[in-house]
């Protein structure tokens, strides 16, 4: 059995890679993918905690399922909007869509 710490390290890495990507990438799709990484790390966390720490129940698994579903819905909307941004700006780079500034 792989100890829980290993999974934690993996999920933490995923999480921070996601955060880093979200902050540094300038491409909308890449940002979306970074966010998905974060969500995946969360899913991993829930599944692992459920399986290794609280094997008698299913709450974490259910949470994972729902979180996957919700993530897909979010992605669908985000993609639709990104396509729209592309149609308006002919670009999907954050830099080029900053019409609005401080």
């Amino acid at each position: 059995m792989i100890p829980v710490e290993f999974y934690l390290v993996l999920s933490t890495l995923l999480f921070f890679i996601g955060v880093f990507g979200f902050v540094t990438r300038r491409n909308l799709v890449a940002m979306l993918i970074s966010v998905e990484l974060i969500l995946n790390s969360v899913d991993l966390n829930f599944a692992v905690f459920n399986r290794l720490l609280f094997p008698g129940q299913l709450e974490g698994m259910f949470f994972t399922l729902f979180s996957i579903g919700v993530a897909a819905a979010e992605t669908a909307v985000a993609l639709a909007i990104i396509i729209n941004v592309y149609r308006n700006y002919r670009s999907d780079q954050v830099n080029s869509i900053e019409n609005m500034k401080f």
Binding site: F15, G18, V19, F22, L28, M31, L32, V35, I38, L39, S41, V42, N45, F46, F49, N50, E59, G60, F63, S67, V70, A71, E74, V77, A78, I81, I82, N84, V85, R87, N88, Y89, I97, E98, N99, M100
Partner: peptide
């Protein structure tokens, strides 16, 4: 233009924030 851009920013931050929030919830779990 601004509306689509605003939507993109909103959905990305909203997703990001719910990711962060879920991460917190997983710790609580």
């Amino acid at each position: 233009h601004n509306s689509a851009e605003a939507g993109a920013k909103f959905i990305l931050t909203a997703t990001f924030s719910s990711g962060v929030m879920l991460y917190g919830i997983s710790f609580l779990y």
